[in-house]
Write a protein that binds this DNA or RNA. Structure first.
Lengths: 185, 185
DNA sequence: CTGATCTCAGTACTACTGACATTA
DNA sequence: CTAATGTCAGTATTACTGAGATCA
């Protein structure tokens, strides 16, 4: 068993932050980072539990979602890697597994013979729908926050990602041809 | 290389949330969970980069910190597992590695012959100090937030953990003997 | 030729299952 | 006897390095 029968009677992160601030210094960043690590572990555990019945992990589920959002239900491996922030070899591994399970299909890219397209299959579409129901059923594992607080959480984490270079700023400009989004990298 | 030469010109999570809300439904929880996953990946990458020069991972660093905070610089394996929310076999693995590197030492528990105490060595103490400098130097990888926003982030994530049963509520009661913290599980 | 795309082999790390010996 | 503590063997994932084939 992973979790003890009885949870700790105190917050271990808050206690560590207390000791940190008296012995080392400012514990603000340390406490936030440790919280992110721990909450990610909790959320991954819950989502994987909801998805395991469908033969999926959160990583593979994300890949399926990404494909289902594509207009033609297909994307190049390289695009998937960039969107999901995955290492090229991780994309290969995840697509391998999805293909073995018949949820996606590899096809040669018509224009670029270096590239490989990954296409969602009908089976993949069905499994994805069932998996989505399962994961929504447990609120993606996220409990304890109001919708407003959840949005605040998203905003704060988005700031961290933007400042970490995860993506560029996007600004809307007015041009004679209409609105245009310009990225500042 | 992991990260592309040029970051995406848009926020992939925000775009996925947009598509999700038009095709599936409320994307509030989905967006927050995906953000936690991605930020954790970013923070782990940055902290591990800062720690790798010292032969540590974030998990091993956390274990050393925990030991250094103990009054006698030693804790039972089981206590470490509960505090760090680690699987028993993960504790064994992490302590194995730390012991191989001479940063901790295993010792029999004086009172409970089933248990094993793990003690921080002088070497471990030195490595920990250097590693802490390194990890503080990069702000634990957390950038883009003001101290107040960082605190808000901690508060929100702490709510999630509390509601997920990660730890119990702690309430301070006044008793004839003074204040007493009581846990409600 | 340079650089992008994808795969393969191999390593490191962590989570988890199941089994097992020891001991409270 | 029941339950807790640690360890071991083995499996599954994902991240990453380095090399190499293919092709824009």
């Amino acid at each position: 068993m992973v979790s003890p029968a009885v949870p700790l009677p105190f917050d271990p992160i808050a206690r560590a932050a207390d000791l940190w601030s008296t012995r080392i210094g400012d514990a603000t960043a340390m406490a936030a980072v440790t919280n992110v690590m721990r909450v990610q572990q909790i959320l991954l555990r819950k989502t994987d539990a909801a998805l395991s019945g469908h033969g999926l992990t959160f990583a593979r589920y994300e890949a399926l979602i990404l494909l289902s959002f594509a207009r033609t239900k297909r994307l190049a491996m390289s695009v998937m890697g960039r969107r999901l922030q995955l290492h090229p070899t991780s994309v290969t591994s995840i697509v391998d597994r999805l293909e073995t399970d018949g949820l996606v299909r590899r096809e040669p890219h018509p224009d670029d013979r270096r590239a490989t397209l990954v296409e969602l299959t009908a089976d993949g579409d069905q499994v994805l729908a069932a998996a989505t129901t399962a994961v929504i059923g447990v609120d993606f594992g996220l409990t304890g926050l109001t919708p407003a607080q959840t949005t605040t959480l998203t905003d704060l984490l988005t700031k961290v990602r933007r400042d970490s270079g995860d993506f560029c700023q996007e600004t809307t400009h007015e041009t004679p041809q209409g609105r245009r989004n310009v990225a500042h990298c």
